Computed example of a mutant assay.
Amino acid sequence: MGPGNRPLDLEWLEDFLALAETGNFSRAAEARAIAQPAFSRHIRALEDWVGVELFDRSAHPAALTPAGRRFLPLLEAVLANLEAARIKARAAHDIAAASLRFAATHVLSLTFFPRWLAGVEARLRLGPIQTMSDSSHACEDLMLQRRVQFVLCHGHAEVPGRLDEAQYPMHQISDDVLLPVSAPAPDGPQPLHAMGQADAVPVLAYSEASGLGRIMRSRMRGVFSDTPDATPALPGGVAVVFTAHHAVLLKTMAQEGRGVAWLPQSLIADELRSGALVVAGGEEWNVPVEIRLYRQRAEMAPVAEALWELTAAAAGRVL
């Protein structure tokens, strides 16, 4: 095994510095609190690793060879950088431990989360906050990988997700409803596309990665598949003409008259008031959903535990 392949023990580097400072094997070994024979073996092992002698043992006191003098400042720089790396890593860990890390679905990060967070901050000093916005499936991944402390998403009691199956603690912190909506017809406030029309209804659907899509496929099995269900029958059926996992994108497509989309009321309240979108079906087509906050199962930082206790006290109502 050549010198470059030998394992290196960091203790040897500290031994080298002690001997370079004292020039005496006995005093250096004493300073390092090890027996002199073991200390001498460490110095020899380091020289074997480097591939050259670092000390002139014939001199009294022991002196650095030209190779040793070149090695010394470089080694001091390496050890200083290692110590700096250790300090910075610990500082980064402390900052992360003191911060709150949320994953929120796209739609809730744009609508519900800022308002809810403001209510929490009025009651609790939170400190640094990190938020990641993604699809429901990606948010679940972040929780399962322990990269976030909390996940904010929509849910339904009869449609369990992966976090439910893994028994992650959850609070319902508000509620919402998916409404079938369409752009208005050119000649009035009636929907351009409506559930129950004679022709097939063009539907703007959620993708597989969307939690809202998972809920819709479960609650509307009789509409979007051949599986019998209690959902109302459609004379002309439906035709899925567009698919995405962003509710905001489906909202834009609905406003452009491309079809009917089931969108969270929290997302389209302004559009419903202004008439930019109109409800495209009766109440039997509405899908009630919950706004949920999931947490890690293990104990979290004190500020995260305090937030969870606050949401427990306010579960079921918006802070």
Rank of each mutant, 00 (worst) to 15 (best):
G275D: 15
A183F: 05
H245S: 07
G2V: 08
E47K: 01
W285F: 06
E271N: 05
P169A: 00
L192E: 09
G237I: 13
L293W: 09
S225V: 09
E284F: 02
R125W: 15
R147Q: 15
L179R: 03
A185W: 03
A239Q: 09
R146N: 14
S266C: 13
G196R: 04
G155Q: 12
R258K: 01
A312F: 06
G161H: 02
A280R: 02
S225R: 01
Q167P: 02
Q190S: 12
T131F: 06
P114G: 06
P169F: 09
A230M: 05
D175A: 11
M170R: 11
G259M: 06
P37C: 13
E121M: 11
T252M: 00
A103L: 10
A298S: 15
H60W: 12
P61N: 12
V181Y: 05
N24D: 15
E47Q: 14
A62D: 04
G213E: 10
A244E: 12
R32K: 09
L144Y: 02
F150P: 01
E121Q: 14
A91S: 09
G161R: 00
H193G: 04
P61R: 01
K251Q: 08
V248E: 10
V78T: 13
V52Q: 08
F55G: 00
D187H: 12
N286D: 15
W262F: 14
Q197Y: 02
G161F: 03
V241I: 05
R86T: 13
N5D: 11
A104W: 10
R217E: 15
Q36S: 07
L310T: 06
R258M: 11
A38Q: 14
A96Y: 12
A63Q: 15
G196Y: 04
L272V: 11
A91W: 01
E121I: 11
G282A: 11
E121Y: 08
W308F: 02
R70I: 08
G316P: 03
I95C: 03
W116H: 06
Q130S: 08
F25T: 06
A185S: 08
E309K: 01
L192G: 07
A205K: 00
P61I: 07
V203C: 10
P186Q: 14
Y168S: 05
I173C: 00
L10A: 10
Q36A: 06
A29Q: 05
A63F: 01
Y206M: 00
F150L: 07
R125S: 13
S133Y: 09
S207H: 06
A166G: 00
E256Q: 12
V120M: 11
A276Q: 05
G68I: 08
L212N: 10
L79P: 03
Q130R: 05
P189S: 12
